[in-house]
Simulated scan of single mutants.
Amino acid sequence: MSQTSAHGSSEITAEQVAHLAQLARIDLNAEEIASLTVELGQIVESVAKVSEVATDDVPATSHPIPLQNVFRPDVVGETLTIEQVLSGAPEQADNRFKVSAILGEEQ
Rank of each mutant, 00 (worst) to 15 (best):
2 S>L: 15
3 Q>V: 08
5 S>V: 07
6 A>M: 08
8 G>H: 07
10 S>W: 09
10 S>A: 15
13 T>S: 13
15 E>V: 10
16 Q>H: 11
16 Q>M: 11
17 V>W: 00
19 H>D: 10
20 L>R: 06
21 A>W: 00
21 A>H: 00
21 A>T: 01
22 Q>S: 09
23 L>W: 05
24 A>V: 01
25 R>D: 08
25 R>L: 05
25 R>Q: 08
26 I>K: 07
27 D>R: 03
28 L>Y: 05
28 L>C: 04
33 I>E: 05
33 I>S: 01
34 A>D: 09
34 A>M: 02
35 S>E: 14
36 L>D: 06
37 T>V: 02
37 T>A: 01
39 E>L: 15
39 E>Q: 11
39 E>N: 02
40 L>H: 04
40 L>N: 02
41 G>V: 03
42 Q>H: 12
42 Q>P: 00
42 Q>D: 13
43 I>E: 12
43 I>R: 12
44 V>W: 06
46 S>E: 04
46 S>A: 14
49 K>W: 04
53 V>E: 14
53 V>L: 11
54 A>L: 14
56 D>P: 03
58 V>W: 09
58 V>S: 02
58 V>P: 00
59 P>T: 07
59 P>F: 01
61 T>C: 01
61 T>S: 03
62 S>V: 13
63 H>T: 10
65 I>E: 07
65 I>H: 07
66 P>M: 02
66 P>I: 04
66 P>N: 03
67 L>D: 01
67 L>V: 15
69 N>L: 15
70 V>H: 05
70 V>A: 04
72 R>G: 05
72 R>M: 12
73 P>L: 09
73 P>N: 10
74 D>I: 01
74 D>R: 00
75 V>Q: 02
76 V>A: 13
76 V>E: 13
78 E>V: 15
78 E>H: 11
79 T>Q: 08
79 T>L: 11
80 L>V: 04
80 L>D: 04
81 T>D: 05
83 E>S: 11
83 E>P: 06
83 E>F: 07
86 L>I: 06
88 G>A: 06
89 A>K: 03
89 A>L: 02
90 P>I: 03
90 P>R: 04
91 E>L: 12
91 E>V: 07
91 E>D: 13
93 A>T: 11
93 A>E: 14
93 A>I: 07
95 N>R: 10
96 R>N: 06
96 R>Q: 13
98 K>A: 13
99 V>K: 07
99 V>E: 07
99 V>R: 08
100 S>K: 15
101 A>W: 10
102 I>K: 13
102 I>R: 14
102 I>A: 11
